[in-house]
Design a protein around this nucleic acid. Structure first.
Lengths: 232, 232
DNA sequence: TTACAGTGTAAATGGTGTTTACTTTTTTGT
DNA sequence: ACAAAAAAGTAAACACCATTTACACTGTAA
């Protein structure tokens, strides 16, 4: 790598780092190219040698955050014995919330209000989100193989609404062959429900109502896992 | 009301109306005082005769939206026979989602990402949110009186984590005397869970995964009500 | 060494919220 | 009816913002 290429990379990293600092300090929507440039002793226009425009910077941050989150989930999964899907799911569920609390701005960037006048490109976000989702599918699949996954009747395939079953079948055929649709439903439902709780907590809509958000979250994870037949 | 006061009110309404138009078109974060002024044929500074600043306008919109939502919930409640809490809860749950779909920008304004550099005053939002929450509490309370409310063991008072029970006791003593804490927990949990699902739907994170979001929501409402012992 | 591509600057355009001093209009009190 | 006060609106400025253009410099490669 030539001297110039190396310098370019450090400058690029400095821009992203300062953007993340601003994001952590005042929220993703208040990232300012001019402020970044000023902090670096550059002219605002110089930033445009590194990012085509504001949206390009945001898109890069989103992509990196998605993968950081997926890495955190996979790391949590690996802290538990592979043959113990209950412990693994529990660990990943808690890690999901913990990552959100540790990186609130990142989490909001990924899953919160879309930034004004910015549309995240699907071809980037969908695969990244899927990598995330797959962690849950994998654990449930392992639990299913050992016969531990025994959901309540409402979540068994024959009781799922036909429209949902049809869509899950299509999705399974495309992305998750050999995975039963009721498992896909459990993964979706479990992710969505816990994800919703975390969003509420981050936006401070749950704190006044519930005292201990961690205990609330833990209780709901437990109830949900019981619905899946996954007892501790 | 003098001629001047009347005119002031229509101007004020025109500002709010245009703000809501912008909000509906491009999201709450892109409301612009200058754009509103231009649309009205006014100088930007003129707006400041009606709102102390940008935040004051947002705060007003938030307050109005909170009450519009609460009105919608109460209206849905009253479409059902008072003695049928199952039908009432069902109707209100669906109305909650429907209002969000009909007024996505309002819903995001209330429950989404905080607007950059704006902090909603708690003395305004908390009572408004509580009016909303009380609809659920009231229905569950009616169900409890007729003995229909029979939650699964995990949600019964003696199984709630002590920290949560303590907080609910304090909240109950303050705002809901005579209401058992397990009921308060059910209301909180039910609200939070469905609310989370709606947030995900509005932010388009659920559509690629789940096919029919309405069916998904309905199924989860049904499962949740079954956990409460409220069968149809 | 001469091109050339990469990196940066200066200046301008049009957008934002907000404040200040000033003018016009309407209401109110005598 | 008329003067004083209050309200509504304007013009101009300030300090931000993203973005574009034309231009200069500099490291690299032919």
């Amino acid at each position: 790598m030539s001297r110039r290429e190396q310098q370019r990379e450090t400058t690029l990293n400095e821009i992203k780092s300062l953007a993340r600092q601003q994001m952590a300090a005042q929220g993703a929507a208040s990232i300012s190219l001019r402020a970044i440039a000023k902090e670096m002793g550059l002219t605002p226009a110089a930033i445009y040698r590194y990012f085509r425009n504001y949206d390009a910077l945001i898109t890069t941050l989103i992509a990196e955050s998605y993968h950081a989150q997926a890495d955190a989930l996979q790391a949590a999964d690996r802290t538990q014995p592979p043959h113990d899907p209950v412990a693994r799911l529990w660990a990943v569920m808690l890690a999901y919330r913990q990552w959100a609390l540790d990186h609130p701005a990142d989490f909001q960037l990924l899953y919160g209000n879309p930034i004004p006048n910015y549309d995240a490109p699907d071809e980037l976000t969908l695969p990244a989100a899927q990598r995330n989702f797959s962690v849950f599918v994998q654990i449930l699949s392992d639990a299913d193989r050992t016969g531990q996954l025994q959901p309540i009747p409402a979540y068994q395939p024959e009781h799922l609404p036909p429209i949902i079953a049809a869509h899950l079948t299509a999705m399974g055929a495309r992305d998750y062959p050999q995975i039963p649709i009721s498992l896909l439903y459990l993964a979706t439902m479990g992710w969505a429900k816990m994800h919703g709780l975390i969003l509420l907590e981050l936006f401070h809509h749950t704190q006044p109502v519930i005292g201990d958000t961690a205990a609330f979250y833990a209780l709901e994870v437990e109830v949900m896992m019981r619905q899946m037949g996954l007892h501790r």
